[in-house]
């Protein structure tokens, strides 16, 4: 029991003392997740809008596929992306393995179905009078999607926050594609895994606290968005 209490004390020391190794993992995590979220939102929002507002042959199949991808195992994504970006892989020449960009590809694949599915659901399940109202007020077709997005903005924000929660907490992709290289690709989760394995509880606890704080912030934001979306 003592080592936990002791570890907790040392963890606070690491955090507030500005330990470079600890804060490097935090910084890498923030940079990595920002990159993955940017990519998944840039791709996922238009796809979600398309899926939520248009009818096309095979739409149901696409929907089921996207929903299935919500629960993609991180290590499987890691494995597949690894195969593509490793030396022998088709994208080997791009030198993406063990870089933040390589890791971001994997994380974006994890986040993408969440953004697509939740955006599509928000638009699909929206009040049918919404479109009629915008039409009767003379909204040009080109601004229709923007108008609709404004209406479901809280649901879309909730989708982004949910996706962020998934990427910030995953280990499999970061470990397999990043290689857990200190100062470069070591994230909060891969650092915790490593340090705990080494018996270094204090850094694990310190990073765990940061992750919990992030998680708390995200869920707080999510509950605010959910409340506004349903108001």
């Amino acid at each position: 029991m003592d080592f936990i209490v002791q570890g907790f004390g040392q963890a606070l020391g690491l955090l507030f003392g500005g330990d470079p190794e600890t804060w490097s993992a935090v910084e890498v995590t923030i940079r990595l997740t920002a990159l993955s979220m940017l990519a998944s939102l840039l791709l996922g929002l238009p796809l979600g809008i398309l899926l939520g507002t248009r009818d096309f042959p095979g739409k149901r199949l696409v929907r089921v596929t996207v929903d299935t991808c919500l629960a993609l195992p991180t290590v499987v994504v890691g494995l597949v992306v690894y195969a593509f970006i490793s030396r022998q892989g088709p994208m080997g020449s791009l030198d993406l393995l063990f870089t933040l960009r390589g890791m971001a590809i994997g994380q974006s694949i994890l986040a993408l179905p969440i953004v697509v599915a939740l955006t599509a659901s928000a638009l699909d399940g929206a009040d049918p009078r919404m479109v009629l109202t915008l039409q009767t007020l003379g909204t040009p077709p080109g601004r229709m999607v923007l108008g609709l997005l404004r209406e479901v903005r809280y649901s879309v924000l909730a989708a982004a926050v949910t996706a962020y929660g998934r990427v910030v907490a995953e280990v499999g992709v970061s470990m397999m594609l990043g290689g857990n290289i200190k100062w470069h690709t070591r994230t909060i989760t891969t650092a915790i895994t490593l340090e705990t394995g080494k018996g270094e509880f204090s850094m694990g606890i310190a990073l765990g606290l940061v992750l919990l704080a992030l998680s708390f912030l995200l869920n707080g934001a999510l509950s605010v968005f959910r409340r506004r979306a349903s108001a």
């Binding site: 009767t136 909204t139 903005r153």
Partner: peptide, 24 residues
């Protein structure tokens, strides 16, 4: 323009609701 039987208000302020068509 049509006022629906069960009108829908945009999820924003009264001002923005009334301004929506003008902005469009």
């Amino acid at each position: 323009t049509l006022l629906l039987q069960d009108p829908y208000l945009l999820r924003t302020s009264v001002f923005e609701n009334v301004a929506c068509g003008l902005r469009a």
